[in-house]
Amino acid sequence: MDDLADFLRTRRSRVLPASVGIPTDARRRVSGLRREEVAHLSGVSVDYYVRLEQGRARQPSVQVLDALARALGLDDVEREHLHRLGRRPAHTPRRASGTRLRPELLRVLELVPDAPAILIDHRLTILAANRLADLLYGRRAEGLNIARHVFLSEEGQSLFADWEGCTLDIVGHLRLSAGRHPDDPELASLIGELAMHSERFRCLWARADVRTRTHGRKAYNHPSVGHLELHQENFALPDAMGTELIVQSAATGTAAHDNLRLLASLGATGDPAPARLCHEPRSATGPAD
């Protein structure tokens, strides 16, 4: 499948003709814009646009991509994704499968004792976690792939209070990651596994939506302490491509803050092991769960 062609087709189908000044009548049988209408709005030839959607035209110019983004009404995230797909070289270097974390990063996790904190890669695999994150997930979180956990496990589906919204975020993130890392075999394997075993994932993946998240609400139904509504902050690490530090907190005096303290106290006797460094590369068959 050609990712650029797929993305253009799905974006075209979502543009209402009336929103770009094109009148419609009862005889119109297509949803969204026709190919020739996109070509006209973007100022490219119909033949060239058709070849783009058929995957027969490679590496369109920046000017063409900008024109297509305007014609299709793309937001900033979608525009960046379009440029990445359109300007992708024919062959890209293969990424190493392992991710090495500096010991200083692990110390940062331990400096956040009152909030769940994790380090996560572009495949949504948790590379390291502090004690409260382990308690939140009810297991050692390191090595857990959140996409697989949410889509393929009953435990994951029951843990996340807004499961449907969570699946939208996950698929949008993986779409962006696939555009950024087209030659990552572990990512491709994960996407294939999710598509094979989850109808929800297949339906969302076919929409070709892309999403990025820097902060927001994250709600859980924890089996031990009940409802937890936390605020999440995502910090992209400048020296580790695709790796993020995620911290989830609750304001003092709120029910969520009290429940986090209760969760920490319930786990005091078990005392899960602190965050550990992922020394060895992951297997090429996919991220561990």
Rank of each mutant, 00 (worst) to 15 (best):
A273R: 14
H222Q: 02
S189Q: 12
H257K: 04
L228Q: 03
A264S: 08
Q248D: 06
D258L: 01
A256S: 15
A240D: 10
G226W: 07
P274G: 09
T214G: 13
A256V: 03
K218E: 04
P274H: 11
F201M: 04
Q248K: 11
H227G: 01
E244H: 11
D258T: 05
P223G: 01
L262S: 09
M196L: 15
V210W: 07
V247T: 14
R217V: 14
T243D: 04
Y220F: 12
E233K: 09
A275I: 08
A250S: 10
P272F: 11
V247N: 02
H222C: 00
Y220R: 00
R261I: 02
D209E: 15
P274Y: 14
Q232T: 07
R261F: 04
E229K: 02
Y220E: 00
W205Q: 03
E193M: 04
D209V: 12
G270F: 15
H231W: 09
W205K: 04
L260K: 02
M241H: 12
H222D: 01
R202A: 07
R213S: 10
Y220G: 00
R261T: 10
F201Q: 03
K218A: 01
T252S: 10
A255R: 07
T243C: 06
D271S: 14
A188M: 10
A206Q: 14
I246C: 07
L190P: 02
C203F: 14
H279A: 05
I191H: 04
H222G: 00
L237P: 03
G226M: 07
T214S: 09
E193W: 12
E229Y: 08
R217Y: 10
D209K: 05
S198R: 13
D258A: 06
E199W: 07
T212P: 03
Q232H: 12
V225D: 00
P238Q: 02
H227R: 15
N259P: 01
R200L: 07
A208W: 07
M241T: 15
G270S: 15
Q232S: 08
Y220P: 00
L263I: 08
Q248F: 14
H197E: 13
R202T: 10
L194P: 03
T243E: 04
M241S: 15
T214N: 08
L263A: 04
G192M: 05
L228G: 01
M241E: 15
P223L: 02
A255Y: 08
N221P: 00
R213A: 06
Q248P: 06
L260T: 05
A240H: 13
N234K: 13
L194I: 09
A273Y: 15
N234Y: 07
N221Y: 07
P238A: 05
A255V: 12
H215G: 03
S265V: 01
C203N: 08
S265W: 07
A195N: 15
V210M: 03
R217L: 09
A208V: 09
H215I: 02
S224V: 09
S265M: 05
Y220C: 00
H257G: 00
E233Q: 11
H257L: 00
L277V: 11
L187F: 05
T254Y: 04
R200I: 09
G226T: 05
A206P: 06
C203Q: 13
T269P: 01
G192L: 11
L237R: 05
A251K: 09
L245Q: 15
G192Q: 15
L228Y: 13
A268N: 08
H222E: 01
A264N: 09
